[in-house]
């Protein structure tokens, strides 16, 4: 009975796998090949050079924007996760109300660009935030750094990716039954104690996943940095996009994209290693099962 079942499985997976191969794996491979080519006057020439990688690694601009991207990514993903966990906890263990979940998701019904412009309005020199600060007498002249700064980029990205992160947190907490929390409380753990002793270790993989997915999306986002980052808020995503859109240097853009990819993977293992070292992540137990 095993053979038909597994062939059924591959049949069901086939459309998605095919789609990913055609529209993700193949283009990625093509881009990978491009990263070793050279560009000359808006044309790309087949070649096999490492200069795209080496030049990027030696370029101060590349490092500036990459560190910027990593910093914005780490800060934004951390704050987003810290904000998402209590909401996720509330949605999973306290109120099973779907309404709150829908209300959280409703921000996704508005356009990404509209929301960025909304933040421009809020943070600008004549924006709501500055007006309040002026009226309250906290500042004498409008604060310019709210807009076109890393701060503006981070606050906007948190707003955009928070609902997404909440969904990821909800799904990873859903696997941990309320009974376990109750049992921990019954045995003397405070609510916070139950979170750190029971929920965090069991949800650690899911929470690290939520953090990393948020990080990757935030670090790779190039629209928000472009609109709100000013000169100090530029990120690798924007630099890469410019290679494709403005300079037409596809090989350099491709090389930088793969460098960013490596950075993300390295960061994933770093975060996981940190979790292991602090004891928050526990290695999965062998899934052996014995009869009664």
């Amino acid at each position: 009975m095993k053979a038909p079942r597994s062939s059924m499985g591959s049949l069901l997976a086939a459309p998605a796998v095919l789609y990913m191969v055609v529209f993700f794996v193949v283009p990625s491979l093509i881009l990978f090949v491009y990263s070793f080519w050279t560009a000359a006057s808006y044309k790309i020439v087949p070649d096999f050079v490492f200069s795209n990688y080496l030049n990027s690694l030696m370029s101060p601009l590349f490092w500036t924007v990459t560190i910027n991207a990593i910093l914005i990514g780490l800060v934004t993903a951390s704050i987003t996760l810290v904000l998402a966990i209590p909401v996720g906890y509330y949605l999973v263990y306290v109120s099973r109300s779907q309404v709150i979940l829908y209300l959280i998701l409703i921000t996704w019904f508005s356009s990404y660009l509209v929301r960025i412009y909304a933040w421009r309005t809020l943070l600008g020199t004549s924006g709501v935030l500055n007006t309040i600060l002026l009226q309250a007498g906290i500042v004498d002249t409008p604060v310019g750094v709210f807009l076109f700064s890393r701060f503006a980029v981070a606050i906007t990205l948190i707003h955009i990716y928070l609902p997404f992160c909440i969904l990821l947190v909800v799904s990873s907490l859903s696997e941990i039954k309320k009974d376990l929390v109750d049992a921990a409380r019954d045995l003397g753990a405070s609510p916070l104690g139950a979170f750190f002793r029971i929920i965090a270790p069991n949800a650690a993989n899911g929470l690290v996943g939520a953090f990393m997915l948020t990080f990757v999306m935030v670090a790779g986002d190039y629209v928000t940095p472009q609109m709100l980052g000013g000169s100090s808020g530029q990120t690798t995503g924007l630099l890469i996009a410019d290679q494709f859109r403005k300079t037409g240097n596809w090989p350099l853009g491709a090389a930088q994209a793969f460098l960013m990819f490596l950075v993300s993977i390295a960061l994933y293992f770093a975060v996981k290693g940190l979790g292991r070292a602090t004891g928050l992540i526990v290695k999965r137990r062998p899934a052996k099962k014995v009869g009664a």
Binding site: D179, L180, A183
Partner: peptide
């Protein structure tokens, strides 16, 4: 008194043992 401060302990229906 919340559960953690009561001098009682409970055996749950599906045991609720900590898997980790």
């Amino acid at each position: 008194q919340p559960p953690e401060r009561r001098p009682v302990n409970m055996v749950f229906q599906r045991y609720a043992l900590f898997p980790h």
